[in-house]
């Protein structure tokens, strides 16, 4: 079996006596469209935090294309191509959309510490940022400050910033959270048009979105993998239905 894009081996995380990740063995293939679902408190966000390096695991390993990155700092993992969005927007609220994306692009291009040239004159950074902003269809809002945007559009800025890091692995933590249903199609479009070569792992409660998007689904319950398979397999899995999916699918 070839190396997965991202893989975890027996990944465990405890907070004191509380086990939030239990021996998670997980594979995210190249170019995957993979969803991670599970009830609240199943440890989904913790799992993302472990993958990005915001948290260090208590035991186990994380491999990026077969290479062990378990002890790499967060900034180094970003450079290796692991990017994420947050469940609750983490944006530079006082800055414009363009400036938000530029900060990420500048870091990726290695000019984030450049002191002499005005940020507005890094033409390559700005061009790349505008390309991403157009990709999420925010070009009309590029000059507006993030605080002035409706929440749904702010979610798109999250995605544009993550894309600005030129990721090979993109971790989307509940991208549709907080978006009114009238606006959710914008987000669906943005996710549908993500570059094919990026491996995407999405955490989402909106089953509609999950089944439309995912080619593979992993169900996490109490920090451990409960089931994994294609959307059809998961939908047919009686146990999954009884612990989690039941109401969500019937509704």
């Amino acid at each position: 079996m070839s190396a997965a894009m991202l893989e975890t081996r027996d990944l465990c995380k405890n907070f004191g006596a509380l086990e939030v990740s239990r021996e998670v063995n997980f594979r995210l293939e190249r170019g995957a469209r993979h969803a991670l679902i599970g009830p609240n408190g199943a440890g989904k966000t913790t799992f993302i935090n472990l993958l990005t390096g915001a948290l260090l695991p208590s035991r186990g390993n994380i491999l990026l294309e077969g290479e062990d990155v378990t002890s790499l700092a967060q900034a180094r993992r970003v450079k290796r191509g692991i990017a994420r969005t947050f469940q609750i927007n983490q944006l530079f609220r006082g800055l414009t959309v363009l400036e938000n994306v530029c900060i990420a692009v500048a870091e990726r291009m290695g000019v984030g510490g450049s002191m002499l040239r005005a940020a507005g004159r890094h033409a390559d950074v700005i061009a790349e940022a505008m390309r991403l902003i157009e990709m999420v269809k925010l070009q009309e809002d590029a000059g507006r400050r993030v605080v002035e945007l409706p929440y749904g559009r702010q979610r798109l800025v999250e995605i544009a910033i993550a894309l600005g890091l030129n990721p090979r692995v993109l971790l989307l933590d509940e991208p549709a959270a907080g978006i009114p249903s009238a606006e959710s199609h914008i987000l669906l479009d943005a996710i549908a048009t993500l570059p094919k070569e990026i491996a995407v792992l999405i955490i989402e409660h909106d089953m509609d979105l999950v089944f439309r998007f995912a080619e593979r689904i992993t169900v996490l319950v109490s920090g451990a993998i409960f089931a994994e398979g294609t959307p059809a397999e998961i939908a047919d899995n009686a146990e999954v239905r009884s612990v989690y999916l039941g109401t969500a699918l019937d509704g």
Binding site: Q90, R93, I103, E107, V111
Partner: peptide, 29 residues
């Protein structure tokens, strides 16, 4: 003035505005 309008200055503003995000874009905060 040069410093605060440079990419370095922008990244400082980023640190002030959202530390968590600055770590997540891989900046040496």
């Amino acid at each position: 003035r040069t410093l605060v309008y440079s990419s370095f200055g922008q990244s400082l503003t980023g640190i002030r505005e959202n530390l968590l995000r600055m770590h997540a874009v891989g900046a040496p905060v």
